Computed example of a mutant assay.
Amino acid sequence: MQMNLQLHHVVQDVTGATGMKIIRSIVAGERDPEELARHRDVRCKASSETIRDALVGDYQNEHVFELTQALALYDFYQTQVAQCDERIEVVLRQLHANAAPVSTPLPAALRRSRQSNDFSFDVRAELYSMLGVDLTQIHGFGPYLALKLVAECGADMSRWPTVKHFTSWLCLAPGNKISRGKVLSSKTRRSSSKAAAALRLAAVTIGKTDTALGGFYRRLSARIGKAKAVTATARKIAVLFYNTLRYGMKYVDPGAEYYEERYRQRVLNNLTRRADSLGFVLQAKPT
């Protein structure tokens, strides 16, 4: 920005293919905007002319030196991340080295797109070989979240007798502060659990999807607020995680429309029952 280069305004991610090629070319000594724009990747939404105009600036030696230092640090951290991925892969293979091989093949992934923070190896396949189930079939679960929850909670869910014990351990279940039979508070307990924080982030993400869990989040959010809806949705995801690992449950999403129809039918049944208790008959509005 100090050199009046507006690359970050025309390229969505400067650490992507187009941005990194241009930055490396600048560090190497290229200053011609026309030549720099030739590094545009075919997947980049901005045109070559737009990128060329954004690269007309005032190149100062001290700022180019600072950019060179930043690029060197970026490459160093990328190397460190790659080494961490290699270490995680080795540990996962050691964990399932003595496990019985899974007879069924790995199911197809729900999401085909690759994220910028993905692992350098197929973590889905490694987790499937170790657990025997594919956690990423649950909406809101990606390979990173699945690995993080397994690291925090383990793979043996029998340590918790029921799913209620598990959600209470995560501090996602309502509290039970009761005195002389009177409920004083049912707020969830505060927790520093990394697993609970990850589940809450997944709940926020899944609230934007056209799934049954997304419909559940949106309905609760409109009724009781977003904070409580996030906790309730996170608890639902934790229940699916527990049942999948302990009982091998296969999650099949019925869709948001199915969930909304079930909710509508439940409301109608309640209204019909109340009208009947008061001596009335509930009738549909004529079309």
Results as ranks from 00 to 15, higher is better:
5 L>S: 09
9 H>E: 13
19 G>R: 02
30 E>A: 11
32 D>F: 05
33 P>F: 10
34 E>K: 15
49 E>I: 06
50 T>L: 10
61 N>T: 13
66 E>I: 14
67 L>H: 11
68 T>F: 05
69 Q>T: 12
81 V>E: 07
84 C>Y: 12
90 V>R: 14
102 V>L: 09
104 T>Y: 06
104 T>V: 11
105 P>G: 10
109 A>Q: 12
112 R>A: 13
114 R>K: 14
129 S>W: 03
129 S>G: 15
134 D>Y: 04
134 D>K: 02
135 L>K: 02
139 H>A: 05
141 F>W: 04
143 P>L: 04
147 L>C: 10
149 L>S: 05
150 V>M: 01
150 V>W: 00
152 E>V: 09
156 D>G: 04
163 V>Q: 07
165 H>A: 10
173 A>Q: 08
174 P>D: 07
176 N>K: 12
176 N>D: 13
183 V>A: 12
186 S>K: 15
186 S>N: 13
187 K>P: 01
189 R>K: 15
195 A>H: 05
204 V>E: 09
205 T>P: 00
212 A>M: 11
213 L>M: 11
215 G>I: 03
220 L>Q: 09
229 A>E: 06
229 A>V: 05
232 A>Y: 02
236 K>S: 11
248 G>N: 02
248 G>H: 01
249 M>F: 07
249 M>N: 08
252 V>C: 05
253 D>V: 00
263 Y>G: 00
269 N>S: 11
271 L>G: 00
280 F>D: 01
283 Q>P: 00
284 A>K: 06
